[in-house]
Design a protein around this nucleic acid. Structure first.
Lengths: 205, 205
DNA sequence: GTCTATATTGGGATAGAC
DNA sequence: GTCTATCCCAATATAGAC
């Protein structure tokens, strides 16, 4: 998740906690493991964050914000939907590869505790991002650049699905690939090459 | 998950456990809650299944097998890929709607404990199903029925992604929809109408 | 602030009566 | 087989010395 060495203990804890929570989920995470990874002991953890719940909430907000900021950057500001698509998949796949644990973690925690969504969303500024995209899709549909009459929202979710699922499903996909005398690595390489074209093919006709 | 009333306690426990495990995951599930749901007490749970781990493994295998059998049934044996696609999405969406908790649960547990995959897969007979589909895709590509030269495996995963993700992502999608003055229900209705066509459009040209 | 030692509690597991 | 009562450990949390 992180990379940069950190001597500020509070941040060191946050980073360690992020790793452990993302890997094990809230229920499966252990304060002991977080302390170990941060190179301190449990008592100090509680000194800084009082409880597991409080630590989690703080970490969750930070992690999600980081993720969404990066996600926002993977969207070009200019260009047609087609151009944006190429760029998005390229960036997003890279991002997902580096943060394989995040999507499943995120979806899970939100499901277990739907209240978390609001805490995060209220602090987000990219609010308008989606609306802008939807407007652009509508416009390009009217202009005939996009031939398909799919609902813009559905097109967006389709794109997200195609982008994220191969990573969320890694544990099972890699097993299936192995059993078919292939491997996950090759699959994901091919995926990155074809997915943008797959979407473009679908809507340009 | 189930539906039918059950007076056989062992099965009653399995069904209750399936519900709780699917909802909370292994780490988050509580033996107490399973006992309550089954209308018995914890001691009896342990009398029947000795430990949480053993109960979980038994339940996991059963639940996954049920799911994969149903999944297999959503695939027509005859017809072109295009015909199978229409049928598959129709059936699969119905299935997913009824078992919203399953996909996320499954992906999560496999990730936490990759060994589970083998336990399940070794007991599965649809092994050849995927291979058959891939052969068919290759054939139709050669015949020119499918115009796209996408790798068959990647096409399959794309299809699965489009089918499953909108349900796995329900917690976050429903929040997003609400914030865009729409709602998850409408989205998913539209999704079911367009997704098959989305794929067909992409590969028939 | 950071540690060791200890308290507390939640929850899985067992004993033993019926 | 099914229950109540209890055990026991793991994991969160706190006290108190330094």
């Amino acid at each position: 998740m992180v990379g940069k060495e950190n001597d500020n203990i509070e941040e060191k804890i946050i980073d360690s906690a992020a790793d452990v929570f993302e890997e094990k989920g809230f229920a499966g995470a252990r304060m002991q493991q977080i302390a170990d990874k941060a190179g301190i002991n449990k008592a100090l953890l509680h000194y800084y964050f009082r409880s597991k719940d409080k630590l989690f909430e703080k970490v969750f907000v930070i992690v999600v914000q980081r993720a969404f900021v990066k996600f926002g950057k993977s969207l070009k500001k200019e260009g047609t939907i087609f151009e944006k698509l190429e760029n998005f998949f390229e960036m997003h796949q890279e991002l997902l590869w580096k943060n394989r644990n995040f999507p499943l973690f995120f979806l899970n925690e939100i499901k277990q505790n739907p209240g978390l969504v609001n805490i995060v969303f209220d602090k987000l500024e990219n609010e308008s991002m989606l609306v802008d995209l939807i407007d652009q899709i509508k416009r390009e549909q009217n202009e005939g650049v996009i031939k398909s009459d799919i609902e813009p929202v559905n097109l967006l979710v389709n794109i997200i699905s195609l982008s994220i699922f191969p990573y969320v499903g890694a544990p099972i996909l890699s097993e299936i690939m192995t059993r078919m005398d292939s491997d996950y690595e090759t699959f994901i390489q091919d995926h990155r090459k074809q997915v943008a074209q797959f979407v473009i093919n679908s809507i340009k006709n």
